[in-house]
Simulated scan of single mutants.
Amino acid sequence: MRRRDFVGLAGATLFQVATGPTLALDDIAAALTRYAGPPAPGPAAPYDVAGLSKDVHRAKAGYQACHYTTVAKRLPHLLSRLDDAASALEGDERLRVHTLRAEAYHVAASVLLKTEERGLAWLAADRSMRAARDSENPTTTGASARVLTRALMRDRHYRAAADFASDAAQRVAEGTEEHTPDSLSVYGALLLSGSVAAAQREDRAQALTLLDEAEDAGRKLGGDHNYQWTAFGLTNVLLHRVNAAVELGDAGSAIDYARRIDLDNIDVTERKAMLFIDASRAYSQWGKLDKAYQALATAEQIAPEELGTRPMVRALLDDLRSRSTGHLHTSVTELAERTATTR
């Protein structure tokens, strides 16, 4: 990251976050436990697949923009409509709807994982994988495997997560005669997911190997793109090098990687916010509490809801507050209070 961007963003005026509605988790739970039956007898109801596609696109884009409250409100109705359409349609339209279901359940699982709703997250991740399988598209299956990998990591099954992601990446490669931008992006993103899991189990060798393989895929892709909603490219590889270094306790290396990243190359708000959260974790490990606070304050500017939904961030704030004094203690406390209003 360019140093002037890092320091400049960290020193800017903070947003004041007003108390807002909580995520509609009960409604999502109801949608996940609603099992669509066979289509009703009589003429099939019309289903606007193009309209469903637009709504799924909106949900994916909203998630990447960290608009979690809005996305959570829309998901229950969208999931029900998609399930009904999959039961009623046939042929290519049905396959297309299964792809959309895989993406929508992926979003649901991702939102639930951020809020530590692990049981529901597992259900949504499994639904995403099953829908992806029904789509008969190896790239879609690989894309859904990413969220199942994260569910495994959240339950601390790091070895299983790393192996699952690596195997899924290999299946994407084997299921594609010649890589397309979509398949290459999913392949590379799976390698990055595996590298995070390996780093979390402190397997430095596997983590670095998977990062290097992902970097090779990023070079082949030739730029930073968002094919299959992966935000994959060489910049994303660097972002994951930051994360892996933090997980491995290499605070200095994490900051060095972060300073190499050009913020202009990060189009996905969630990834940009996570960069500053990881930088804060690294500074905290390093004992540079003021810089850890500045990085979190910058993440708040970028995506207030990202801070509010992550228990990890609240734990980091509690740690910073317990170790700080004076003006810094006051600033951290105020940030923690603002963050609490976005839950």
Rank of each mutant, 00 (worst) to 15 (best):
E103T: 00
L289V: 09
G308M: 01
E117Q: 14
S195R: 14
T309C: 11
D27E: 14
V17P: 06
A279I: 14
A72Q: 10
T69W: 08
E270P: 02
T341P: 00
S185E: 09
R101L: 07
K272V: 09
V237N: 10
S280V: 14
E90I: 13
G194V: 00
Y47C: 05
T141K: 04
Q294E: 13
V313K: 05
D224A: 04
A108S: 09
A169C: 05
A30S: 15
H77W: 12
A273T: 13
D92I: 12
P43K: 10
V56E: 03
A173L: 11
E305N: 10
T309I: 15
D26Q: 08
T115Q: 07
E117G: 05
V111N: 10
Y187K: 10
R219M: 14
V172W: 00
T176A: 04
A125I: 05
L113Q: 07
A205T: 12
Q64C: 05
A205Y: 11
R4F: 12
W286M: 11
A162Q: 11
T19Q: 12
L25I: 14
D182R: 13
M153A: 02
V111M: 12
A217E: 06
A245D: 09
I255P: 04
Q228W: 02
H77Q: 15
I277M: 15
M1E: 09
K73C: 08
R2T: 06
Q285L: 11
A340R: 10
L335W: 01
E270G: 07
Q228A: 10
D256G: 12
A151L: 06
E136P: 02
L316I: 01
D84H: 12
A59Y: 00
L320M: 02
P43Q: 08
A143W: 00
S331Y: 03
L78D: 00
E90M: 13
D216L: 11
R159F: 15
L75C: 01
G308D: 03
A214P: 05
D256A: 15
T330I: 11
A162T: 12
S193E: 09
L221V: 00
G175N: 01
K272W: 06
A145I: 00
A143E: 01
R321N: 12
N265E: 15
V268Y: 08
G194S: 04
R219Y: 13
R118G: 11
I255L: 15
L328E: 07
E213Y: 01
V17S: 13
P39W: 02
D224F: 02
A36H: 02
A86V: 06
R118T: 15
R2P: 02
G249V: 11
R260W: 03
S322R: 15
L190P: 10
T115R: 09
L23D: 06
R34D: 15
R81Y: 05
A86W: 02
A315N: 14
R133L: 10
